[in-house]
Design a protein around this nucleic acid. Structure first.
Lengths: 130, 130
DNA sequence: TAAAAAGGCAACTACCTGGTTGCCTGTCAG
DNA sequence: CTGACAGGCAACCAGGTAGTTGCCTTTTTA
């Protein structure tokens, strides 16, 4: 119970992260903030084909996901990537990737003998997976 | 031009991947397929709180993203993770992560002196980023 | 001090998405 | 051969999302 609960928590924690990164405009914003450092809404809008308000909304989404943070600086709001959170996200991805890797290798060999997939499923579950 | 075009392509290539993984149900399905190997729609539905049709839709999304593949086996359709594509995706994530890493380190030091963010932005751009 | 710049707030639209139900087609087993 | 099982297809619905426009406040600057 505890283990599956943990798994669920990890899931509901990870999905929003992917969701926030699942928009091209947002991904582009994140990219720019990483490459060019802190930028204002106006600066970000300049290189975006969408309205300033649209960019603002995207920034809000990124902020809600903990990926970016904005702070007032005079009449403009400067946005920057949230390093801790982004690094945390990166480690999350690495963790998942690693988790996948094991299954990948096992599946790879399975793919080669396509015709026996369903037949081998049962023993597969019992022998090779938790 | 060529470089920014490449960047755009990478973006429009990556975003759908994140998008496909940005749903908790879908992430759960991917997890199960990785852990337990090829499964039928009915088997996947059994551990999902949603309808069989909902699961089918999610599988279609995963298939469109190239992450999963289904094949008929008698009267049931067995789904499995697309190893090559998933590995490709993993490398994609690693690539992005690495790209972020550099910015992370640079930003990390910037965060510590919060009050001078905007002041240092200009030289920051010129000196430390492409 | 008045105009311009930066951006927040709210309303509204169009579309996408996750989910459902109902019905239909194959396939397997008694 | 008939019933049960697996699943696809289509219609439909509620809610979310990306985007817009319009108006407002605050800050800068000429």
């Amino acid at each position: 119970m505890t283990r599956s609960r943990t798994r669920t928590d990890t899931l509901s924690d990870t999905a929003p992260l992917f969701m926030a990164l699942g928009d091209p405009t947002r991904l582009q914003i994140v990219g720019r903030l990483c490459r060019e450092g802190p930028l204002s809404v106006a600066q970000l809008t300049a290189s975006c084909p969408v309205t300033r308000q649209a960019v603002s909304k995207h920034l809000r989404v990124l902020a809600d996901a903990g990926l970016a943070q904005g702070r007032r600086k005079g009449r403009e709001q400067v946005w920057q990537i949230q390093p801790q959170r982004l690094d945390e996200a990166r480690r999350h991805l690495d963790c998942i990737s690693t988790q996948w890797d094991a299954a990948l290798r096992r599946l790879q060999s399975l793919v080669e003998k396509n015709e026996t997939i369903a037949d081998s499923t049962q023993s597969y579950i019992k022998c090779n997976f938790v």
